[in-house]
Simulated scan of single mutants.
Amino acid sequence: MPALPEHDFEDRLCQVFHETGESFVPDTPRLAMGGATRGRRRQRRRLALGAAAAVLAVSGLGAAVLPSALHTNGTGPAASPVPSPPVSDPPDAARIPQEAHLASAVAERLPKGLKIVRSDGSTQGSAAFPTNRAWAELVLDDGQGQSLLSVGVFNPHRGAIQPCDQSPFTELECRQTPQPDGGTVAVMQYTGKDANPSRFTAVEWVTADGMTITATSHNVARRGGTPDRPEPLLSAAALSSLATDPSWRTIASQLLAVMPDSTSTNASVQRPDLLPPGLKVVSSTAGAEQTATLADGDRTVVLRLQEEAADRSVLDWFADAPTLPDDTRIRSVANRPVPATQGSTETVVDVLRPDGRRVRVTAVNPAGAGSPDAGRAPLLTLDQLTAIARCPGWTVPAPD
């Protein structure tokens, strides 16, 4: 078989390993987003936080989900202290509560002493959008060069697969080991054919019921980039320890098997004027979750836009939210640190439009340890994100 270009190889590999099984009917309900009566909502939030603390303490995921004031463990990589930026703290009904970041959960499970240079990933929480996967990407540095780490979590309803049996690539060395529970752990290693080749090592844990965790360490700092070090930073043994952590099942159980249709009924609207002048669109993607990486020459911001039709739980979640003159309801949080990431922050605006469409716009400052931007607010402000969220049909611009 002829060798694929390296920039196509990993995309194809992911496609082979992570078929989502669209014939499956999802039987995992979306995360509960409330539904209590307005009079009981605040009390239930307090009770839920206490219950979550108890459950997550058992599962080991508490540090990734609970507010930073409740973090008590000392695990995770060491880093220079980063000053915490100011965090908006409007009344409960207006504020988006703390959510679980997969990047935080991964960071808590890394070997000590690593710097997190950059991070981004998906979130889960009482009002997070439904999704069929959780993901995180972190750029790590051990002093010998930077290395991209990517982690993906898929729920048990997608159907079990055998990674090595399905790989059509001659460039990939794949070893698969049966596990006592009936699942498998596959260790995959890839080396490109260039004089200074790209390499990655991946470990995939597939349980007997189909829960799948992948952890991949690269010798490049960004996808498609040139190697920054001879070998991936994390060894197969370190990746195996990360991928087979049993606490990932808590996250996997909350994922859908198939993504719901969230197509907007509005025509696409190109309104680049809603982005501040001087921001260049470095990359962008379309789909259920639009994303764009924007840069002003010195700093970078990751912009995400999600949209769905509001169901009853969404309506309840917005019931007490502030209402704008056009009847748009809005909840937000500005400049909030992403726990354990050594500097990443986020600003989020979530609106319920009068037409019943819900739109969430997130801006992430991905900068971490060693960056002068660590701990700073994202490049896009709360007002700018609000303008985007309130613009029906707004789409992420194409790369410049």
Rank of each mutant, 00 (worst) to 15 (best):
T170W: 01
D181V: 03
P130T: 04
L256G: 12
A208P: 00
D245T: 09
A208T: 00
C164F: 12
V359R: 13
V364I: 11
L138F: 08
F24E: 14
Q179S: 06
A127P: 00
G60E: 14
P86A: 10
N365I: 10
V58T: 13
S80W: 10
A79W: 10
S80F: 12
R199V: 00
K193M: 00
T244H: 04
R329T: 04
A51F: 10
R376E: 14
D326Q: 03
T300G: 00
M259R: 09
G370V: 12
D296Y: 09
T300S: 10
G183E: 05
A160F: 05
P197Y: 00
I213N: 01
V187N: 03
G375Y: 15
E10N: 08
G76V: 08
P163Q: 09
T362V: 14
A136H: 03
G278N: 04
Q189M: 01
S253N: 15
L102T: 13
V333M: 00
T184R: 04
T72E: 11
S119A: 10
Q384G: 13
N155I: 01
E204S: 06
L49G: 13
A221W: 07
L66W: 12
A78C: 06
L275D: 13
I213F: 06
P260Y: 04
P168T: 01
G152I: 01
D194N: 03
L274P: 14
R109V: 09
W248K: 07
G368F: 08
P111F: 06
A94L: 12
S313P: 05
F154K: 02
S284I: 08
P392E: 15
S198T: 06
T75Y: 06
W248T: 11
L148Q: 11
D245G: 03
P85E: 10
R390D: 12
T341N: 02
P277N: 06
Q124T: 04
T216V: 11
H7C: 05
N73C: 14
E10W: 09
P130S: 06
R360E: 12
G183F: 08
D350E: 09
D209W: 00
D320H: 02
T323P: 03
A160K: 14
T214N: 02
G74D: 14
P178A: 10
P130G: 07
S126E: 08
V351W: 11
R353A: 15
A160Q: 13
P67A: 11
R223M: 11
P5D: 13
R199D: 01
R390K: 15
A208Y: 00
W394S: 07
R133M: 07
R12P: 03
I251N: 04
D8R: 04
V185M: 04
N219P: 07
A208S: 07
S217E: 05
V302T: 03
N365F: 11
G182I: 07
S235D: 12
T201F: 01
R249Y: 10
E231N: 08
S104G: 09
T37Y: 08
N132I: 00
P378E: 02
G287F: 10
R358A: 14
L256F: 11
